[in-house]
């Protein structure tokens, strides 16, 4: 297996917005994500996981360490790294189809090819019949489906997801998680998924990086050896591998949270 994303010795400090005091957000992060792999990152809030994602997305500049995709140093945002944001970041003045095709439009892909690919991804995320709707006419779950389709349609090398399902209701979240597994199987994309929900990380990830509290360090990598085809909420709760991985992640996260409370 080849490494798609490589992060070496990455540290990050930033001045606090109000006090100006330097905050140590990330400390000496070393990690690799393989081609086609689904990796979840879990950690207590404030552990720098969103900072890491913003650096990988190219939205935040870094000075210490190195981060590469396919051997190319990350320097600013680019269509090779698609991002699905925490809150709804699809454009309210574009229809579902207009949002999903936006990346192709920016890359100046001809109309016909664009329409074909948009239709393909609308089908993939189950938004057929909603092509001409505006975001304010969609439910929270549909908006995030649209956001995922928009990112995938631009055909990135790696999809970075920042707690994308945190704002939807529990029932919808379960459906979206199962759909994301299906999409990962269908597209074979490399996915880096940030979450604070332990269950979500164990359900989705082939591996899970557990981060320590601030300054964020990679504490442990938990492997979850469950074929993607077996990942559905009906069966997985009884799977001993899932239970083991989830309990291990939970124990690690709790240690961090308890240590933080002292």
């Amino acid at each position: 297996m080849t490494a798609k994303l490589v992060v070496q010795g990455l540290s990050h400090h930033y001045p606090d917005e109000y006090t100006g005091v330097s905050v140590h957000a990330l400390d000496d992060i070393n990690l690799e994500v393989n081609d086609g792999e689904f990796v979840a990152i879990v950690g207590p809030s404030g552990c720098g996981k969103t900072t890491l994602l913003n650096i990988l997305a190219g939205l935040l500049r870094y000075r210490e360490g190195n981060a590469t995709v396919d051997g190319k140093k990350i320097d600013g945002p680019g269509p090779d790294r698609g991002v699905v944001f925490q809150e709804h970041a699809i454009l309210p003045w574009r229809t579902v189809a207009g949002n999903i095709g936006h990346g192709l439009e920016l890359q100046k892909i001809p109309r016909q090819e664009r329409q074909d690919r948009v239709a393909e991804y609308i089908e993939l995320v189950g938004l057929v019949g909603f092509e001409d709707r505006y975001p304010h006419e969609l439910s929270g779950g549909m908006k995030q489906r649209c956001a995922v389709a928009r990112t995938l349609c631009a055909d990135p090398e790696i999809m970075l997801m920042d707690e994308p399902f945190a704002a939807v209701d529990a029932q919808t979240r379960i459906t979206l998680q199962e759909e994301l597994i299906r999409i990962a199987i269908a597209t074979k994309k490399t996915i880096l998924f940030i979450t604070h929900a332990v269950d979500e990380a164990a359900f989705l990830g082939d591996r899970c990086f557990v981060f320590s509290r601030r300054p964020g360090r990679l504490r442990e990598t938990v492997h979850i050896n469950i074929p993607r085809a077996e990942r559905n909420w009906g069966d997985i709760a009884a799977n001993p591998e899932f239970v083991r991985a989830r309990d291990r992640i939970l124990a690690l996260v709790r240690e961090e949270v308890i240590a933080d409370d002292r």
Binding site: L59, P77, P79, G82, V83, A89, I90, L91, L106, R150
Partner: peptide, 21 residues
């Protein structure tokens, strides 16, 4: 909202495209 601007940049938008779109 900043996230709209960030989203456009991560889709590969140039400065001009961010203004336009």
């Amino acid at each position: 909202p900043l996230r709209y601007i960030h989203a456009a940049y991560t889709l590969g938008a140039s400065k001009f495209q961010v203004i336009r779109d």
